[in-house]
Nucleic acid binder design. Structure first.
Lengths: 112, 112
DNA sequence: ATTATATGCATAATACTCTTATGTATTATT
DNA sequence: AATAATACATAAGAGTATTATGCATATAAT
């Protein structure tokens, strides 16, 4: 696991990217996907994720659809049109940020 | 400028890296150096920087030396032995984090 | 059968860090 | 003479994450 402060500010970017790849996901699924894809290095907590999802929905970036699975409820999130744009912008901004940080921290690409 | 949440959590890493390269710097100098090196893309604010420096000093990561420049005061910060280790760890952790995020966000190295 | 784990949502108290604003003071520039 | 730059510092407020808690169903393990 990374120190928590490192991951700060990247939560929304991660969520938006996953949703642009997967069209439709629910909260718990997002936490598991991130855990899997990062080999447990990034584990989103519910206390951070759910408020973030709610805020993205309030901003009109995500829309929701509630589905009943047996007696349990699942809330699927989908990117709105605005959300698709936002997702691309966020990823692109982060990509730029990575380059700036690599330069600033003098991080070389590992050879081999 | 990047959106502020993007830069969150990177402040200490940036400061420690600069100090490992420059041996001895003062607060204002750090803000200018970062501004210069990033082409104004990252601008540290005093309200964030000074408390961070104080906290790093309290942790024994930085030591200070106050120098009088005419009638003005400058507070130079230097990495302690512990600080040198911390600096390397932080940069290395961030480097690892970048790789994880590049994979997660499917960011390709730009060719050309 | 019963207990523990996993799935699935949500929020509240707390802590932490950054933004923004303010304060003080010296030095350089217009 | 006024403004900008240099140089420190802190305080109020905002925002976001951590940690803890709560509720409930479903599945796996003992």
């Amino acid at each position: 696991m990374y120190s928590s402060e490192l991951i700060k500010g990247t939560l929304k970017t991660i969520v938006l990217k996953l949703l642009s790849d997967n069209q439709k996901m629910y909260g718990y699924e997002i936490t598991q996907k991130v855990k899997d894809l990062t080999g447990d290095k990034i584990q989103l907590t519910e206390g951070a994720l759910y408020p973030a999802l709610h805020s993205l929905e309030a901003e009109g970036i995500l829309s929701t659809e509630v589905v009943n699975i047996g007696k349990r409820v699942r809330k699927y999130y989908t990117l709105t049109k605005k959300g698709k744009t936002t997702s691309e912008e966020k990823v692109s901004e982060f990509s730029d940020f990575i380059n700036t940080m690599k330069f600033l921290l003098d991080i070389k690409p590992q050879v081999g």
